[in-house]
Structure formats: structure tokens, C-alpha cells
């Protein structure tokens, strides 16, 4: 099954959310993470979910591959509700990168990359060829693949994490604050590389970030989430030119003031 895209009718989004709600456990109706959110993620589009921390954007991302479950509403994959026994198959077709990379410390970078492909039955030659190809794309010296995560810098680790997500040419790439833990210089370089990867990658990309400039640089569509609801959904230009309300104005304003401080 490796390499076979998920079957879906033409024109159907890979992921869509229908009136999805989420409350945090233990707080009854207390903290609302998501409140009746409906969204579609189209192939070939890079979408950035932005918002303040705790706005529910990470929860939303995690729901797409079943790492979190909605309390209300539905998550549709290829137009059909996501069933628990389909989680594994779906996750193999979706790359997922987190802020700390999630590399396994007991495995070398190369073995981290090989985990899923090996399980999918790839031979070592194919795994290494794909790893070299991605290393070139992410500008990572291939000899570093022999190292353990503890022997890599933060930027190198995130490069490997992105490579691991891309190994089996997934149908979608989900990134949760992938550059959040990096220092500004490394972050700047990696933003550039991510943009190139996204540009050559025709499938669905969903990126979570709290940095508006990064979102605008990497994504063609921004979705601003505040207090569990979508406040504005549009292009970066829409956000600047036609902010939906005061909060959007303040959010974009706060970000723009930063470089001048």
C-alpha cells in the first residue's frame, strides 16, 4: 500500500471539520478549546493556523490524525468520518512534526527516518536513497544521519524531524510550531527551507504557529483562532487590509510592532 494516496473523489478536501467542539476534561463547560469550528483543508494549499497560545489551534491539528478526539462535531477524512481503526493507516499517509521534533533518542537520525519505511517493507537501499534526497533538500550534510539526536543541534534535529515526516511522501504534512524552539538565526534559515519544501510539495500542508510573519511567509491561507472560534480565514493580504474585528487588528498590530521595538 506504500505510496498509494488515500482514495477520495476529485474535489473533496483531504481534511474537513464539521462543527467540531472540544472542552478540556475536568472543567465541564469550563475551558473551551474549540467551539463549533468548521474548516476545509484543500490539496495543494498551505494553511497556517494562527492565534495566541491556548487558542485551540494545536488541538485542532491533533484531531486531524486522531491524536485528540472532538467532544462534538465530526472530523472527515477524504469526505468520510474518521474511524478509530483507520488511525494507523491515516497516520502513515500524513507527516507530523512537533516543536521538539519528537526524534527518538535511542535511534540515530537515519534509524529515526527508517522507522516507518522499514515497517512498510522498504529495503535499506531505498530508505538510504530517500534519506539522501531529503537531506539535500533540507541542506543537512548526509554524514550527520549517522549521529544520535543528542549529537545534533536544535536546527539539525528539526531538519531530521521534517525529513522523517516526508520519508514516505505523505498526502499531507502537519506541523505544530515546528520552529518554535529555535533561535532566530536558525529559524530564519529553516523558514526558507520549509518554504521551498512546501513549494515543491503539491499536497495538503497545515502549519500551526503563533508568529504571524512566519505564517504569512510560509502559507497562502491564514486561519486565526481565538477562544476556540475562527475569527478570520483568508490570505495574508486580507488580514492586513481587511481585519475582521478588533482582535484581528490587535493581533496583527502586535506582531507588526515587534521588529520596531
Amino acid at each position: 500500500m506504500a505510496g498509494t494516496p488515500l482514495r477520495r473523489p476529485r474535489g473533496t478536501p483531504l481534511f474537513s471539520l464539521e462543527k467540531v467542539s472540544k472542552h478540556y476534561a475536568g472543567t465541564d463547560a469550563g475551558v473551551v478549546a474549540l467551539n463549533q469550528v468548521s474548516l476545509r483543508f484543500e490539496p495543494g494549499t498551505v494553511t497556517a493556523l494562527i492565534g495566541t497560545s491556548g487558542s485551540g489551534k494545536s488541538t485542532l491539528l491533533r484531531m486531524l490524525i486522531g491524536l485528540d478526539r472532538p467532544d462534538g462535531g465530526r472530523v472527515l477524512v477524504g469526505g468520510k468520518p474518521l474511524l478509530p481503526d483507520e488511525h494507523l493507516a491515516l497516520r502513515r499517509r500524513v507527516g507530523y512534526v512537533t516543536q521538539d521534533g519528537g526524534l527518538f533518542p535511542h535511534l540515530t537520525a537515519r534509524d529515526n527516518l527508517a522507522l516507518l519505511p522499514r515497517h512498510l517493507g522498504w529495503n535499506p537501499e531505498r530508505i538510504d536513497a530517500r534519506a539522501r534526497e531529503l537531506a539535500a533538500r533540507m541542506q543537512l550534510p548526509p554524514e550527520l544521519l549517522r549521529r544520535y539526536p543528542a549529537e545534533l543541534s536544535g536546527g539539525q534535529r528539526q531538519r531530521v524531524a521534517v525529513m522523517r515526516a516526508l520519508m514516505s511522501s505523505p498526502d499531507a504534512l502537519l506541523l505544530d510550531e515546528p520552529l518554535g524552539a529555535l533561535d532566530p538565526v536558525v529559524r530564519f534559515d529553516l523558514q526558507e527551507q520549509l518554504r521551498q519544501v512546501f513549494a515543491t510539495y503539491a499536497n495538503t500542508v497545515v502549519l500551526v504557529t503563533h508568529d504571524l510573519a512566519e505564517a504569512a511567509f510560509l502559507a497562502s491561507r491564514l486561519v486565526l483562532i481565538h477562544d476556540g472560534s475562527v475569527v478570520q480565514d483568508g490570505t495574508p493580504e486580507d488580514f492586513m487590509a481587511r481585519p475582521a474585528d478588533d482582535f484581528v487588528r490587535r493581533f496583527t498590530g502586535a506582531q507588526r510592532r515587534l521588529p520596531q521595538a
Partner: peptide, 16 residues
């Protein structure tokens, strides 16, 4: 927990 989640997100079965 992030490592466990990363393992789950890879789509590897429990046994692996």
C-alpha cells in the same frame, strides 16, 4: 509523552 505521541503519529502499530 511527546515521544509516545511522536511514535503514535508515525502510524506504527502498538507492537512495533
Amino acid at each position: 509523552a511527546p515521544l509516545l505521541e511522536a511514535a503514535a503519529a508515525l502510524g506504527l502499530p502498538h507492537r512495533v
